[in-house]
Every structure is written in structure tokens, then in C-alpha cells.
């Protein structure tokens, strides 16, 4: 599912980035590569998202969140 549509408060795993080179590299420079795990703190639904990742909290714009594919991870996994 898309990060922009996930429910807040869950542990998520990044599956894939649907985007051009620029965005992928920008995210990878922050360590957000496929396999990375983070918590969605709040946001989504047509707005930006706030994630908590390795002790840092990041805001990702809505456009970006729509292009990041994630799945539930850890104890939240189906």
C-alpha cells in the first residue's frame, strides 16, 4: 500500500519507491531504502506524513508519500 494511505501508529517496512532517480536518491541518503523500517506517527489523507525512523522524525510531503510503497512490519504484520 502507499505510505500516504497507511494508518498512523503502525510499524511499516519500505517495499518500493515509485519515482524517478532524484527522489529515490534523496530518500536513500536518509537511509530510506527498501527494507527500512519506520513508524508512521501521523498524517496522510491528502496531507504530508510524519514518520519516526532511527531516532529521527521526518516530514515527507504528500506527493512523496504517495510514491512510497510500504507494508506492515513487525508485530503489526498480517
Amino acid at each position: 500500500m502507499r505510505l500516504g494511505r497507511a494508518a498512523p501508529g503502525r510499524l511499516l517496512e519500505l517495499v518500493r519507491l515509485q519515482s524517478g532517480l532524484g527522489l529515490a536518491q534523496r530518500l536513500a541518503a536518509l537511509g530510506l531504502v527498501p527494507g527500512a523500517r519506520f513508524t508512521l506517527e501521523s498524517g496522510g489523507r491528502r496531507g504530508p506524513v510524519l514518520i519516526s525512523f532511527q531516532g529521527t522524525r521526518l516530514i515527507l510531503g504528500h506527493g512523496m508519500a504517495e510514491r512510497i510503497m510500504v507494508r506492515l512490519a513487525g508485530k503489526d504484520a498480517p
Partner: peptide
């Protein structure tokens, strides 16, 4: 297009 928006909190 608006610049990709990533920001550390």
C-alpha cells in the same frame, strides 16, 4: 512542480 518536501523535525 513543488520541490520534493522532506524535512527533519
Amino acid at each position: 512542480p513543488p520541490p520534493p518536501f522532506i524535512m527533519e523535525v
